[in-house]
């Protein structure tokens, strides 16, 4: 007898419950972002006033600055951490067997397992011990560090699926190490590197705890700015801003999905 999930008793109810808990709050936020009311609970008709408010209202300057900080930090952190993660993946996957390989892998992926609050406190203590000034730069450094494992995992997974004979073929055809990487390994790894980059970007863009600890006074990213506003009571403009962020994330995930698809299409087929 085969296992058919559609006929499994209780499957439908459980699925609906999970979907409800996961998505109804998001749906409420999205719907109420179009509410033409100052109240966040009373529905008074459809309007785009809170979207206008995000860009022109009293808090708009704060949000714009925070969004700019978030984007530049996320972009820089993703670029640097992806570069480091790519180098690490090549070393780990292609570097042959060396003593302490498992330990190295554990060290690379540990930041995913360590509770974020512990990392946040430790990073803050580290920065103050070496008297590193808190601000945009301290956020960036912290983000680069915790983004590396997130970028590393998809990149090394992709590299493990690539046969070593491509690199051997390139070297055999007179490509040196760098030319082999640039013309052969990098293009074939491309989809994995792109996934790693997008994951690092989203993780950085989304981070609150560590950012909040190491940001210093006066520097805000979008998550910390939103948290700051919500502390004075939830305004409908926060719903509009959250909806915009959600759409941005969905766009990125969709992009990464299609890049992954393209990568699959490039996988060689043995033919017949």
């Amino acid at each position: 007898m085969t296992f058919d999930v559609r006929r499994y008793r209780g499957f439908f109810g459980l699925t609906m419950l999970c979907l409800f808990i996961l998505y109804v709050p998001l749906l409420v936020v999205m719907v109420y972002s179009f509410n033409d009311s100052r109240s966040i609970t009373n529905w008074e008709g459809v309007s785009l006033r809170w979207y206008v408010d995000v860009f022109t209202g009293p808090e708009s300057e704060k949000f714009k600055q925070a969004a700019w900080n978030s984007l530049t930090i996320a972009l820089s952190a993703a670029i640097v951490s992806t570069t480091i993660a790519t180098a690490a993946a090549i070393g780990m996957v292609r570097g042959g067997a060396f003593r302490g390989k498992s330990a190295t892998f554990a060290l690379i992926s540990l930041p995913i397992m360590v509770p974020e609050i512990v990392t946040a406190v430790a990073t803050l203590i580290f920065f103050s011990t070496i008297a590193f000034p808190l601000g945009t730069l301290s956020i960036l450094v912290a983000h680069i560090v915790f983004c590396i494992p997130f970028a590393y995992l998809p990149i090394s997974a992709r590299l493990q699926g690539i046969e070593a004979s491509y690199e051997e073929a390139a070297q055999d055809l007179y490509a040196g190490r760098w030319a082999t990487f640039r013309h052969v390994l990098f293009p074939i790894m491309g989809p994995g590197i792109m996934s790693g980059f997008l994951l690092a970007f989203i993780i950085s863009l989304d981070d609150f705890i560590i950012t909040n600890f190491v940001k210093g006074a006066g520097v805000e990213t979008l998550p910390t700015a939103i948290f700051g506003s919500v502390k004075q009571g939830i305004q409908p403009n926060i719903m509009a801003l959250s909806t915009l962020l959600l759409l941005f994330s969905i766009a990125l995930v969709t992009l990464s999905y299609f890049i992954g698809k393209r990568g699959e299409a490039l996988q060689p087929d043995r033919g017949d």
């Binding site: 046969e163 051997e168 073929a169 390139a170 055999d172 007179y174 040196g176 074939i188 490039l266 060689p268």
Partner: peptide, 28 residues
């Protein structure tokens, strides 16, 4: 190293570069 030996290899699994056309593979 292999890139400095004037010998070339035909691999068992061919190892053609999947992102390049036939022409680009031969020209590599």
């Amino acid at each position: 190293p292999p890139d400095r030996r004037p010998v070339n290899t035909v691999f068992q699994n061919y190892a053609l570069f999947p992102h390049m056309t036939v022409q680009e593979n031969i020209a590599f």
